[in-house]
Design a binder for these strands. Sequence first.
DNA 1: TTGTAAGCGTTATCAC
DNA 2: GTGATAACGCTTACAA
Lengths: 335, 335
Amino acid sequence: MATIKDVAKKAGVSVATVSRVLNHYDNVRQETIEAVQTAIQELDYHPNFLGRTLRRQETMKILVMVPTISNQFYSRVVKGIQTAAQAHGYHTMLAITGSDPEIEQEHINMARRKLVDGVIFLHTTMDAIDFSDFAENYPAVSACELVEGAKIPTVSIDDYRAALDGTRFLLHNGHKRIAFVSAGDLYDSSRRRRMGYAHALREAGIEAEDHLILNEGFTFNAGKRAAARILAMPSLPDAVFATSDSTAIGVISALAEHGIQVCRDISVMGFDNNQIAEFYLPHLTTISQPQFDIGHKAFELLLNKIQNQSCEEQHILLPHKLECRNSVKQNGSSK
Amino acid sequence: MATIKDVAKKAGVSVATVSRVLNHYDNVRQETIEAVQTAIQELDYHPNFLGRTLRRQETMKILVMVPTISNQFYSRVVKGIQTAAQAHGYHTMLAITGSDPEIEQEHINMARRKLVDGVIFLHTTMDAIDFSDFAENYPAVSACELVEGAKIPTVSIDDYRAALDGTRFLLHNGHKRIAFVSAGDLYDSSRRRRMGYAHALREAGIEAEDHLILNEGFTFNAGKRAAARILAMPSLPDAVFATSDSTAIGVISALAEHGIQVCRDISVMGFDNNQIAEFYLPHLTTISQPQFDIGHKAFELLLNKIQNQSCEEQHILLPHKLECRNSVKQNGSSK
DNA sequence: TTGTAAGCGTTATCAC
DNA sequence: GTGATAACGCTTACAA
């Protein structure tokens, strides 16, 4: 492997000059530039970034902490991050934690060890105190999840409001008994959505039934488990509000197994508006999140922290939208 | 930020000793170890890996070149890679290329610049010559795609054989006119599958109809486009063999839009056996790939190259399996 | 068992 | 314009 020294020797200049050429300084003679470039070509030289990185103390890399990439939702957020990062010359590194605190901690050390310039959390297992503590010492932002009480720039939707809107929509269309399938309190967004759901029920004068709240997670299989519990109920609820499209699909699929057809016998509402929502049969009525924009904005916030240290706490809320398709009965036909 | 020097000073020892403690050398006095560890604690010191990395010329990081993470197929392969990598102390970095040669090249430079110890390609836009050339100079392996003529260790299924099996299954169940939706020649696997499909037709004495081969890609929307072309045909084919589950779903969904019901009016076979295949309605009959194992094995091959330089060319073929569900009519009911 | 010092490949600060 | 040279934070001979 050729180094900068080899190039310098071959071009008959000093390493400093080679470095200048490499970094496009304007105080190098044209002939010298050419001589250096020729040497670079001939030696097939590629600068070793480790040296530069060590010297400059910046890696031009960021780490994205993601609980899973099996859910299309995160894929899209990551895409947004990556697009923004690339535009600023940053590389994106993905760490899939599986919501395992140990794995998360190990990756967090990458930031501590200066292997990355900053971290975007799509989820964390840390509590608000540890999370704030980390964010105080290293450039970090949170996306998708608004961790209660944590001092860290965050971009997400208003989960409370989104669930409120979704539940109201179900109520306005004549559904009274609404099951709620969520990921429990592992995710702050889930908790917040559950509160929005409860609020809507309350304002409609419907008393909440605890057993209708099913904490199963947000995978396909979580939906399957939720459906099993629903099938075991003495009477079917009017609707199921699942806090992810995957869960909704798991529910629908499992209910179908027992001859229960969505939209005829029961309504199901999803969350996220992943691409599959549009292609599933029935097409999913769901709450749409601006996934790409969330990621994009998250990177911008991070870059801000990396460059300015400006720690002004920001919580950016991006708009959600109710995407009306075929999995929810409309016009109160079940009244 | 505390450095190794600060720790040394605080502990009253030399940096060498600190380094020894850090790396668990056994020739350090217990008391010294403790003194150093105390200093580390007090300073909240975290070793800067850049220094070590520069010195050791290894990053303990690998790069995975993936065309997209929107397709669950790749998520699962990446999971396999990451699991294996983690077990060996390696971190996994994901580069999403979108099959853009420029983006791919830019990331390839990361290997050239020693930012990673090796690269796993889940897809490449390079031709066999460039690909071989790269693999000759840097630790690299290919997964999922067997690039014709490229000298690089590879792990994948036997795509030819898999498509052969799939097509035979359709034929044996009475389907004669079979449309084939593939990604065209961008992916070697696609090309190979198309040949398997053609082979099966030939051996059944059925003459291939060129217009039944639809090169659209492997996304949901590719399936949608394929369905549009199918609907424009003078008569509907008996079956559609899509070379990914996403495409199959796109086809099914779009056909449903026009009142054509899969399994009653037409059969659709997928490929990959993503999780959604099991949860889609109808449940997808598909060719299952051992995605996790492919990823896992790919890392092992890469580690081998990183450590031994043993460049023996290997092509590992893992078994596929026909997963029989509800999207294909069986027992020749359409004969 | 520990310390000294060279070196990894760069970039930055001086001189000249 | 260009060249020495120190420095980045660490590991590792070699010496003590």
